[in-house]
Amino acid sequence: MLSLLLDQYNYAVVIILMMTGLYVVFASRNLIKKLVGLSIFQTSVFLLYITIGKVSGGQPPIVESHGSDHANSETLLFASIGEVDSVAQSSSEVLYSNPLPHVLILTAIVVGVATLAIGLSLVVRVREVYGTIEEDKIEEYDRIYYKEILERQ
C-alpha cells in the first residue's frame, strides 16, 4: 500500500480519471455529455500510456545533435552530460523517455478525434429526427412509435 502511494500514484490518479469518464458515459442520459465522458476516458488512457513511458530524470526523445555529423551516435549520446542528473548505469549517458508510447498515443489522439466527429454527427442526426438529444425522451418516442406501428397491423 505504501509503495502504491510513493511509486505508483500515477496509476491511481489515472484510474480515478478513467472511471470518472466511464461514469459520465454510463450515467448521463444526454448524448453530448456522453461523448464528453468518452473523450475524458480516452485522454485518461493516453495518460496511462505516457506515464508508463516516463523515465525519471529523462529528457524528451529528441536527440540533440551538434554540427552536421549526426551519423555518429556515440557523440550524440555523450553530447549533453551536464544537464541531467542521471540515474543510468553510466553517469555520462543522456536519458530519454520511451518514445514508443508517444507514437502510439499520437495516432490514438487523431483517431479519437475522428471517432468523436462521427459520434457528434450521429448526435446531430438524432436531434434532427427526434428533436432531442436526451436518451430518455428518445426511448419514449421510440416506444410510442413502435406501439402505433403494432396497433396498425
Binding site: 530519454y96 523517455s97 489522439i109 479519437g112 478525434v113 457528434l120
Partner: peptide, 26 residues
C-alpha cells in the same frame, strides 16, 4: 512527462479541434 509531441497534438487536436466540433454540434 517528456511527451512533447503528444502534448502539442493534444493541445491542438484535443483541446482545439474537438472543442470546436463539440460546440458546433451543441
Amino acid at each position: 512527462l517528456d511527451a512533447v509531441d503528444v502534448a502539442f497534438t493534444e493541445a491542438a487536436v484535443g483541446a482545439g479541434v474537438s472543442t470546436v466540433l463539440m460546440l458546433a454540434a451543441m
